[in-house]
Nucleic acid binder design. Structure first.
Lengths: 339, 339
DNA sequence: TTGAAAGCGCTAACAT
DNA sequence: ATGTTAGCGCTTTCAA
């Protein structure tokens, strides 16, 4: 049984009362310098660490924050988490990371567990399947600080940070059009997601501005967000089977982008007749396929901002009523690769 | 302030004592069916969740386990974590994931924090820089169940699980030799790591068995494990600059493999004169470069096994004295890609 | 300057 | 079958 030393142990060893030890360790003003030194020295010598559970129970404060993301094995999220951690670490907060695998049930369980585990706040990027937000609303109403990032929702009023999905998408589509593509198909992520709709809207607007028709036949939904390769391959096959074949594919998400490239390769599609452009934060995407252009989100930065927002919520003395939704621009990586 | 309902609240609302409520909720045998129903119904209606901090404090048991890995943005680890979670979830355990970015300090902080946070056990894969294991020894001596996976160490006696690094490496090198390669260079990970040495040993043995000389000139160390691209590129440049250029590169780690491919591409090395083979668990590695052969570790499976071992340690009635180090075979993906 | 005591939410003897 | 009480480790009045 793992049993670290307690304040009581120190008190007994030093013939002091627990309260004195507690105050000494936290540098309380009432304690004499001498006692403080004795206590801290001894505490260090036995490598004393306070029990966070007891502290949380007492203080309703844990100096840890919970992170809920769909998938760690997704570059965007692991980069965002790195950003979150960098800020959290500086401010003395620990991070507890959980993943949902895009399951609403797991999402609810994780969020509730974190809340009960008395994290001081929650950073969440929604799962693709979630349509019922009551569990979050309840937590939020009960006073748990929540910040949404990337996959945000309208239903809860708080700080949010997301990418300029519309613009990123618009520019990428523009670029395809400029390069002469006439029939641009889309592989879209689950339609419940904010990011999906924004990205699709950017695509539509680009078509419109170029007086090109929007053709629903060219849209394919990948409800599993690219986690199910077969779903993506089927979508690609059905696009290739169209009598009026598309000459480009625009993809609204990272995992789908990868799966699409794989599918095109395995179907022996000609990379010259089929241009591919999509959102991706994979760190190897530039190595994948000669002509793959992509939109990259500033994931690390988004993580940092999200954590800063959460800190603001947590550490604010009075309730915050003015909330901000930050939109971070994306980077477009076209074919002419510099650097 | 987030403040969930407590057992006391329920007790007051239902005019019962806290202990009755507690027992009813945990289906205690002493409680009448009627009371049980009343209590559970009410608890459900207000969405009562027990406070894990209080439980941990009381029971010295948290039903959560801590995970310490170098880097989440590394396919191997995110896959291993998925394996860990799958077992943990089935057994009612939560996982708390932390990453060290290969910093010993972060590693120590994380491990200590998790231990104090009263996780019931620890799953750890060592950071590349760590040479002082006293913090782990201390935790272990104090009774914290620890299981090592992948990057294991000899210094602590407990359950461990790792890959057949020697054999995987041996076979990959054999394969390079069979295909006619004569001068096989190596990009090696930090030499502190168990996996680095095992993989290097496999390489050496393959040379030996083929009566080929081991040439230290062909070995390059990447102490940053591929996180520092420049380090890898420099290594590649220096290999290409050799008067007697290597005709193959064997790489002992995932991140270095990726960086090496990128470096070769940016240096315009001819993929036909320079064969590349390395360890990688990236899910896009097969798309990267036509002739890249790779050794894949069974990461998910390793995670599952590690978690099972940890459960055994945690839930064993009496102290375990017989420890096992499981070695899991690797998959070699050569050039003839089926499927 | 220090100590005693109560309480955070929960459980488990020990009553009743 | 249910209630009372003490205690997990810590902080914080209140008292000395």
């Amino acid at each position: 049984m793992y049993k670290p030393a307690t304040i009581k142990d120190i008190a007994i060893a030093l013939n002091l009362s627990p309260s004195t030890v507690s105050r000494a360790l936290r540098d309380g003003y009432e304690i004499s310098a001498g006692t403080k030194k004795i206590v801290t020295d001894y505490a260090n010598s036995i490598n004393y660490q306070s029990n966070p559970n007891a502290l949380s129970l007492k203080n309703k404060r844990s100096f840890s924050i919970g992170i809920v993301v769909p998938e760690l094995a997704n570059s965007f999220f692991s980069q965002a988490i790195a950003g979150i951690e960098s800020v959290a670490y500086e401010s003395g907060y620990h991070t507890i990371i959980t993943q949902t695998h895009d399951s609403s049930t797991r999402e609810r369980t994780n969020a509730n567990h974190l809340a009960n585990r008395s994290v001081d706040g929650l950073l969440i990027s929604m799962s693709s399947g979630t349509t019922d937000y009551t569990f979050l609303k309840t937590l939020h109403k009960n006073g748990l600080p929540i910040v949404f990032f990337d996959r945000i929702i309208d239903e809860i009023e708080t700080f949010k940070v997301t990418s300029a999905n519309f613009t990123g998408s618009y520019n990428a589509t523009q670029s395809l059009i400029k390069s002469g593509r006439k029939r641009i198909a889309v592989l879209a992520n689950a339609p419940q997601l904010s990011i999906t709709n924004e990205r699709l809207a950017g695509y539509k607007k680009a078509l419109e501005d170029n007086k090109m028709p929007y053709n629903a036949d060219l849209i394919r939904w990948c409800y599993k967000g690219g986690n199910d390769y077969q779903e993506v391959e089927n979508a690609v096959i059905s696009l290739l089977a169209l009598t009026d074949q598309p000459d480009a594919i625009f993809i609204t998400s990272d995992r789908i982008s990868i799966s699409c490239i794989r599918a095109l390769k395995s179907l022996n599609a000609d990379p010259n007749t089929m241009a591919v452009t999509g959102f991706s934060n994979s760190d190897v995407v530039d190595l994948l396929q000669p002509n793959f252009c992509y939109v990259r989100q500033k994931a690390f930065e988004m993580g940092q901002i999200a954590m800063q927002m959460l800190l603001k919520l947590i550490e604010s003395k009075y309730p915050i009523t003015e909330f901000e939704t930050r939109v971070i621009d994306t980077e477009y990586h076209g074919m002419e690769k510099e650097n």
